[in-house]
Amino acid sequence: EAHAAIDTFTKYLDIDEDFATVLVEEGFSTLEELAYVPMKELLEIEGLDEPTVEALRERAKNALATIAQ
C-alpha cells in the first residue's frame, strides 16, 4: 500500500519520491487526505511551510477533480 501511495503522489502531485515517502511515513496514503486534512496537520511535517502546503493541497484537489472526470 505504501508503494502505491508513493506512486500516486509522485504522479499526481508532481513531487519526487523522497517527498512522497515522507508524506506516507507521516501517515498520508490518499490524495483525499492531503486535499482535506486540516492544514495544521501538514504544517507539523518538518520542512513544510504554508506556501508549500497550500500548493500541495491545491494539486491534490486538482488531481481528484481530474480523476473524477
Rank of each mutant, 00 (worst) to 15 (best):
P51E: 13
P51H: 13
A35P: 02
I15F: 03
R59L: 08
K61C: 05
E54M: 05
E17C: 09
E44V: 12
Y36H: 14
D7E: 15
T21Q: 12
D7S: 06
G47Q: 06
G27Y: 04
I45H: 04
A60K: 00
V22M: 15
A20P: 00
G27L: 02
F19R: 04
K61N: 07
L48F: 10
A60C: 04
L34F: 05
E41Y: 06
N62P: 01
L31V: 05
E58P: 01
T10V: 15
E33V: 05
T30A: 06
D49W: 05
D7A: 08
A60R: 00
A63S: 05
I15L: 07
K11F: 09
V22W: 09
I6Y: 04
I45W: 04
Q69A: 15
E58F: 01
I15G: 01
L34E: 00
E50F: 13
L34I: 15
A2N: 13
I6W: 02
F28M: 04
L34T: 00
Q69V: 10
E32A: 10
P38E: 12
L31I: 09
D14S: 08
S29E: 08
E44I: 12
F19G: 02
E46P: 15
A63N: 02
S29P: 03
G27E: 01
A60L: 06
D49G: 05
L64F: 03
D7H: 11
V37Q: 11
F19D: 03
N62L: 09
E25A: 13
E46V: 14
A63G: 07
V24E: 03
P38W: 02
D18S: 12
A68E: 11
E54W: 02
L42K: 04
Q69D: 12
L23Q: 00
A65V: 14
V53S: 09
E44R: 14
A65R: 07
L13T: 01
V22R: 15
T52W: 09
A5T: 10
T8C: 10
L31N: 00
M39L: 12
V24H: 07
E17K: 14
L43I: 08
M39C: 06
G27N: 02
A65C: 08
D49V: 04
A4G: 11
L43E: 04
A68M: 08
E32T: 07
Q69F: 00
R59I: 05
T52N: 06
N62D: 11
D7K: 08
T21K: 15
L23E: 00
A5H: 06
E46M: 11
E25D: 11
A63K: 03
I67H: 06
V37R: 15
A2P: 10
G47M: 07
A65P: 03
